[in-house]
Design a binder for these strands. Structure first.
Lengths: 226, 226
DNA sequence: CGAAGTATTGACTACCTTCAAAAATTGTGG
DNA sequence: CCACAATTTTTGAAGGTAGTCAATACTTCG
């Protein structure tokens, strides 16, 4: 009935992200961005659109007193940096080392005129983007810490998880504080919740940046009910 | 630098809302919906798009156990019910008595093909919609109860406030529980926070559904810092 | 006027945050 | 390659903000 893909919370971007081919854009060489390197800042001239080839980026907004809300994690196939006006509306940095294809914004807008169906396609992605953001509203507004963390892990599991002897494993390239700022929690609470999941036998933590899910069904259940 | 309008949090809709003219649609008579009357439910066939002429509607999502997150309040000029697929992705009800113009979805999609600039226009609105939703992320994830309520009142003030002998007054058609579910709070906390604002002399509450702001500057300051 | 729904207020509780310190990991320069 | 510094993560203890439960007041509506 409800057709949101489990990975949707990772697709949000600067303004609109679209997991679509960038038809007609010049094929530039992917550019390497080292971990923590900024792509752009809020208020900058929105000159470029970034297509993520490899690695992970984060988009965020900062409040005057330093409080931060991470809006999205961008994974390969996602696009960040689209804007409805001249400016970027959030900060964006590489989480891990990343390879990005950099397109000039005009490569997009001229496409709209040449190819109306491309605009239509983008519009659909924008709509599903809005839809996935609405899911995140419930997460931020109405879920407990355990539900938030479990939802986050379950989504990552669905998107980048790989089967390894009965467990579903994946990397978590971002630090705990990023997860915290994405879920509206403190990094201590994220850490404590992960520990509890580990002690309960739901997950293993072979290293700080790697998670193996022993009980996927339990994790999914926790994502909706604690 | 940041070009979000202060009213933006009220524009979010079922999937995409657009405060734009519905060019080319047949001009049907506005239909009256009494207070609390549902427009559509999540999962329903997304047959119609609703243009709000008068009154207020709310869009929401319900969790399995009854927890609710209100996604948006729709005011005159807003459009609700657009979907990227065949189905609605949230519930929608009239908050107060409302007059709505009901368009068949085809009136929109055929427009895309006839008029590419209409699609482009819609895309821009979708992008600014995403932008305003991102503001709401910070609200839900990182703001205190006082900041949330103050932000909400400040936004309403900017959108529908009217000057009355040195105060800015406006109606609040929705019950406290709606405000609570929009801000991710309990209705008791909303009530307590309004009382505190009243005792502090920032607002008057001439009736349950009416607010007069005595100190607009203070209110705006509280919206960002408590 | 009485009933039902909504709003306010109070008391208590709990979840999460904050502050603090220790442990683990990562990075750097010799 | 190791030692040391810096950062990140974990864990602990204490406290606060907001939630829950409950009772009362207020509105609205039949």
């Amino acid at each position: 009935m409800y057709v949101t893909s489990p990975v949707s919370i990772f697709k949000n971007t600067a303004v609109v992200s679209a997991n679509v081919g960038v038809g007609g854009a010049t094929h530039t060489q992917p550019v390497h961005f080292p971990a923590s390197h900024p792509l752009f800042f809020e208020g900058d001239d929105a000159e470029f659109v970034y297509e993520i080839i490899e690695g992970v980026v984060r988009t965020s907004k900062i409040l005057f007193d330093g409080r931060r809300q991470i809006l999205s994690f961008g994974y390969p196939g996602d696009v960040v940096g689209l804007s409805h006006d001249r400016f970027y509306h959030c900060d964006c940095e590489a989480v891990s080392d990343a390879k990005l294809r950099v397109h000039h914004k005009n490569a997009f807008s001229t496409n709209f005129e040449r190819d109306p169906s491309f605009c239509n396609e983008l519009l659909k992605y924008a709509a599903s983007e809005v839809n996935s953001m609405q899911e995140h509203f419930i997460m931020l507004g109405r879920k407990s810490a355990m539900e938030k963390v479990a939802s986050f892990l379950a989504a990552l599991m669905g998107r980048v998880g790989e089967n390894k002897d009965r467990r579903i494993c994946f990397d978590i390239p971002m630090p705990r504080s990023d997860i915290a700022d994405f879920l509206g929690l403190s990094h201590e609470t994220v850490s404590r919740t992960l520990t509890r999941l580990r002690l309960d036998g739901v997950i293993d933590l072979p290293s700080k940046h790697r998670i193996c899910v022993r009980q996927p069904a339990t994790l999914k259940a926790l994502a909706e009910k604690e």
